[in-house]
């Protein structure tokens, strides 16, 4: 399966989803004009991936800032990833936070049914 990679821009995050690597990554800012248009290809890619995931998948979230519609898209990403443990494979989510992102991480942790670790970014 081919990797899904997008470089970060001032308004969109870096998306690095490479099945050959151990870790998937989303980092930077997520304030696109149209969030669903931005995340739709990734959601389609994840639909394929969750059908045949690796034995272990680690998803790292290192977001600095995101808008409301991006948070809905993040929920959709997590919903797709929730299917991985159902196939008997391992999944872990690492939410890296500074003072701004801590509460958001806790909100996601509350509604997502995957192992969710909160990791504080040290200065």
């Amino acid at each position: 399966m081919e990797a899904y990679y997008l470089e970060a821009t001032p308004k969109t995050p870096k998306l690095d989803f490479n099945p050959a690597a151990d870790t998937f990554l989303i980092s930077g800012r997520s304030i696109p004009e149209n969030s669903i248009e931005f995340y739709k290809p990734l959601l389609d890619w994840l639909d394929d991936y969750v059908n045949n995931p690796k034995d272990s998948t680690n998803f790292e979230v290192k977001l600095e800032y995101f808008n409301t519609s991006s948070s809905k898209c993040l929920v959709e990403i997590f919903r797709k990833l929730e299917k991985i443990p159902q196939t008997g494979k391992e999944l872990s989510v690492d939410w890296y936070f500074d003072e701004d992102m801590q509460e958001s991480g806790e909100d996601f942790k509350e509604i997502i049914k995957v192992p969710f670790r909160m990791i504080q970014i040290k200065d």
Binding site: T68, V75, F108, E110, I111
Partner: peptide
């Protein structure tokens, strides 16, 4: 139930923003 959870999350994110 899911939608309530998401609505709570979106409200919380939006309020913070």
């Amino acid at each position: 139930e899911r939608l309530i959870g998401e609505a709570k999350l979106l409200t919380s994110v939006s309020d913070r923003l």
